[in-house]
Write a protein that binds this DNA or RNA. Structure first.
Lengths: 194, 194
DNA sequence: TAGCCTACCAAGCACTTGCTTGGCTAGCGA
DNA sequence: TCGCTAGCCAAGCAAGTGCTTGGTAGGCTA
């Protein structure tokens, strides 16, 4: 294989990501990671500078992909409601494809954000807020969404509900991420009453 | 004061709760707690057996109060829709009144649940699920809620949205917990479209 | 005033943490 | 065959971790 050089690194990153997602960043030791990889802890430092640089790499590469998808939606020509639906679907898809990364971001962003190195996490948060608020305001302006809503609050509810789903969503389970997105959009758009 | 004996203990618990909520349980050291209280770390062990017993006390007493409230709603004579609304309101109220406790439960339940001592956390989770599913099924049966909903999924969405609000809700802020509950119920019950 | 209790300090122990250092080995291109 | 690199090990250090121990000061009560 041509990418043999990269492979071991990426393999270790995947192992680390799963542990970070499951046990938390601070709660995962370099010995845990090394054990799971079948090597000694010191050997990790042949591949990475520090434990921090591992999460850094995991999170930043994921964020880049996700925000590329959002940008594509915003730049598209769909009507506001379709764009909003697309953003929700893309998010649930991210949970399906990048379970560990989403979980790490959800659980550790606050803590990691206190370090200079992870200042970009706050920027991404702001960027995400801009995306959703833009979509919601376009929706209200176009008449597709109710005018009596507190757009900021709606944004928070959507963001929370979508991302926290990573806690219970099972990638190979009975419900696909399409199913989950469908059900959530039904509730969000039309409510649960008859 | 008659409760002077209890006061210092409770004061220390409050200090610990705030740190656990902000920095995480594992990420908070006994020296952190002691520093915040203005004493040395060893002195904490005059009041408590261990760091674990501190979270234990914090969480269990909170849970008892919360589930008492749920039980009251279930036992009431309101119609299904009113009961559902009441459960949502009680939850947002808990976020307002017990910020730290809710945050700790949200962030640490998974990790703590792996210890025998905190097995009751899983029981409480199950109990909570029963409460919400009962309310939702009564709603569907009465005709107040749509029949095409996946009740289990709706439960998860509600649970997540309500409790994760602890991450951004500001107790003394512009929006009261009543306001937040109102807005969420509007969305949940009737949707965001026109 | 003697005995007891609450609240704390000072010191440190046993262990875990992230990370470092120096060295080994297998494979590959020249 | 030589040098180079990727990948790993063995050993350990400095800082931090939860918790223990023996002791002190002040107040309450019999």
């Amino acid at each position: 294989m041509a990418e043999t050089t990269q492979t071991r690194r990426e393999e270790l990153l995947q192992i680390a990501a799963e542990l970070f997602a499951t046990k938390g960043f601070k709660n995962t030791t370099v010995r845990d990671i090394a054990d799971a990889a079948g090597i000694l802890s010191g050997s990790l430092y042949h591949h990475f500078d520090s434990k921090e640089s591992m999460v850094d790499e995991i999170l930043s590469s994921f964020q880049e992909e996700l925000f590329g998808a959002y940008a594509g939606i915003l730049a598209g020509t769909d009507d506001p409601r379709a764009k909003l639906e697309a953003a929700v679907r893309v998010s649930f898809e991210a949970i399906d494809h990048h379970r560990d990364e989403v979980a790490i971001f959800q659980n550790e962003a606050d803590y990691l954000g206190t370090f200079d190195r992870f200042a970009y996490l706050a920027d991404r948060n702001q960027q995400s807020r801009d995306v959703w608020l833009t979509l919601l305001r376009e929706g209200v302006a176009s008449g597709a969404l109710r005018k009596d809503l507190d757009v900021e609050l709606v944004y928070r509810f959507i963001r929370d509900t979508v991302w926290v789903a990573v806690r219970w969503y099972q990638p190979g389970g009975k419900l696909s991420h399409h199913d989950v997105a469908d059900q959530y959009l039904t509730i969000l758009l039309d409510g649960i009453t008859t």
